[in-house]
Design a protein around this nucleic acid. Structure first.
Length: 564
RNA sequence: GUUUCGGUAGCUCAGCUGGAUAGAGCAUUCGCCUUCUAAGCGAACGGUCGGGGGUUCGAAUCCCUCCCGAAACGCCA
């Protein structure tokens, strides 16, 4: 039930000769200040129509408008401010939330269409850094948002499991590596080898040649090379799984770059068929000048295929295999150009579904203002960050709630929650400079704040002897603190829609924080368990808030401990 | 140099399709635990919305221009 819509209809019944219903709906706004009511209609635009000053129009118009939904209207200058009927709105909103619980806010937009999401995509033999966290948690949150609007997400971990770096790695392993060390701590050891390769190669260029040679052997199916590659891949996946488990994330597909090795000739053939390939400086390219883009490189002058070729193969494969409604790529914004090219080439191929392919870019994480670089060993390891967060959460629990059962588990939920929430609370495209102090915070606009708010709400329900409220005789609430909460619950479907339309998890995170803040003010000012005519309705409000906060956090990929 | 993002309080950021006195959090100072978890609530402090033009009844928001920062810019992914 959309109350703004109802107000718009009421106004339309008086103004239908001058404005459309849609115009009116768009003009209606949410006042910034509570004394201006809940919905406001500015009369400026009518001034031209009626040739009168807007304040006068507002005055006259207000007299003609009435609805049981409006408890009070006030004309302030050119504005008509409407105050909604709190009893009936809270009754309506709460009965809906209490009945639907976490399902509240589900929208039928996607008709069950498939949406593959290219996300996470760490490189084999390299540790997951804070940079991978972004793609992983944004992709995961988007998958939940898509589900919420009736799409079927398909989470694809497009692993970086192919490329010249494996030639380098094999070279380094054969020169300096040892099996036990790799087995004991695979990623750490492989990374050390990789870093050493680049250090030594600075003074010894022949090493690069060895690297290229070994990659060539790998491509040609040389047994030793393939065995090492497989082993590195396996050991790496085991390590990644540990992190994904902590983040509570799973994938529907692990088809990485190597998966498309045998599918790239078809792409080249297809481009040839459509006469899109041209030779330039010894390389095959697709000219994209009419899109104002650099040409897309399909084949290097040595005949090797490229990133673009592989991504084209992947795009075609996904369309064929999933018949997707949309196809998303959660990849850093530094690759925006690449995806523009990818989409342009698909368009050149005459594929009308190229419009359904979307790059979802996100900002860069830096450390001390500089880009992280695996090659130079300059990384912030995700695992270290999660460990630190979890440890600090445990310390906090020992300090504030030492009798809490299952402390380690809750500490993990809170610590990891803090890290994930921090990554999602701001606009995807914002860059940020990493500091552990900022990421691992438990106060203010943080994940733990939302979790804590919900835990306190749960505690009220426990003391009332219920776990949830299904229905109540009356759900009418009239105080200002409840009202702010009710309005935020009412906004929820709209929030979900905006998050979907912008592919923007931070909209959900903002809602969680705002709702938690409103609830905490309610908590500080309104007694729930005391005898009161509205006690039942208040309990329902508390129950509704626990469900929606939990749902917000679930969408973001953050757990909700009942106690903390 | 070209293109794309960004510049809002000391710091980190909100500000939905232009609207009424520009909002949070952190930090600093102060107040609130004999009542539902103080990871909380309240108050104070803090702003030429990068500069300058323009459109509009109205601009942080739209257009132009300049300044500053980041990223991308054919044989890496």
């Amino acid at each position: 039930m959309d109350y703004k819509q109802q107000i718009a209809e009421t106004i339309y019944s008086v103004l239908n000769e001058h404005l459309t219903l849609e115009d009116i709906y768009l003009l209606l706004e949410k006042p910034k200040h509570a004394e201006h009511g809940d919905v406001a209609f500015p009369a400026f635009q009518l001034a031209k129509v009626f040739r009168k000053n807007p304040a006068h129009i507002a005055q006259e118009l207000a007299e003609d408008i009435s609805s049981p939904l409006i408890s009070k209207k006030q004309v302030v200058g050119p504005y008509i401010n409407f105050f909604l009927n709190k009893e009936s709105v809270s009754q309506g909103v709460l009965s809906e939330v209490v009945a639907e619980k976490g399902n509240y806010g589900h929208l039928s937009i996607g008709n069950g269409g498939n949406v593959p999401i290219d996300m996470s995509s760490p490189n084999i033999a390299k540790p997951m850094s804070m940079g991978h966290l972004r793609s992983t948690v944004i992709g995961n949150a988007l998958s939940h948002i898509l589900e919420k609007v009736d799409f079927k997400p398909i989470r694809i971990n497009h692993l970086g499991d192919w490329g010249t770096q494996f030639g380098k790695l094999i070279t380094a392993y054969k020169k300096w590596g040892n099996e036990e060390a790799v087995r004991a701590e695979p990623i750490k050891e492989l990374l050390a080898l990789y870093v050493k390769f680049h250090e030594v190669a600075e003074n010894d260029p022949t090493l690069e040649d060895d690297g290229r040679l070994w990659f060539k052997k790998l491509e040609d199916g040389n047994e030793e090379a393939v065995e090492l590659w497989k082993w590195f891949r396996e050991e790496s996946l085991k390590e990644f799984k540990k992190v994904y488990d902590r983040l509570n994330i799973s994938f529907d597909s692990l088809s990485g770059e190597a998966f498309y090795n045998d599918k790239m000739d078809q792409v080249v053939d297809l481009l040839n068929e459509k006469e899109l390939l041209t030779m330039d400086r010894g390389a095959y390219i697709v000219d994209l000048e009419k899109y104002d883009l650099n040409p897309a490189l399909i084949k290097k002058s040595d005949g090797a295929t490229l990133y673009m070729t592989r991504d084209l193969a992947a795009a075609l494969y996904r369309k064929k295999n999933y018949d997707f409604a949309q196809s998303l790529y959660v990849v850093g914004q530094e690759q925006s150009n690449h995806f523009k090219q990818l989409i342009a080439v698909l368009k050149e191929l005459g594929l009308d579904w190229s419009d359904d392919v979307h790059h979802i870019p996100f900002g860069l994480i830096t450390k001390d203002g500089k880009k992280l670089s695996t090659r130079k060993g300059k990384v912030v390891l995700l695992e270290d960050v999660l460990n630190e967060a979890s440890a600090q959460a445990l310390k906090q629990i020992e300090d504030k709630n030492p009798n809490l059962p299952d402390k380690e588990r809750v500490a993990e939920q809170v610590g990891v929650g803090a890290v994930v929430f921090h990554d999602l609370k701001n606009d995807r495209l914002n860059n940020f400079d990493f500091t552990i102090e900022e990421v691992v915070q438990f106060e203010g606009e943080t994940g733990p704040y939302v979790q804590y708010t919900r835990a306190r709400a749960m505690s009220i329900l426990n003391k009332a002897g219920v776990t949830t409220v299904e229905s109540a005789n009356s759900l009418a609430l009239t105080d200002d603190y409840s009202w702010e909460v009710v309005k935020l619950l009412h906004d929820y479907p709209h929030t979900i829609r905006r998050a979907y339309e912008n592919f923007e998890p931070s909209i959900i995170a903002k809602h969680a924080i705002t709702l938690a803040q409103a609830f905490n003010r309610f908590y500080a000012n309104v007694r729930v368990l005391d005898a009161h005519p509205e006690k039942e309705a208040r309990l329902a409000l508390v129950s509704a808030v626990t469900d929606i906060l939990k749902e917000d956090l679930r969408i973001l990929g953050v757990e909700s401990p009942d106690e903390m």
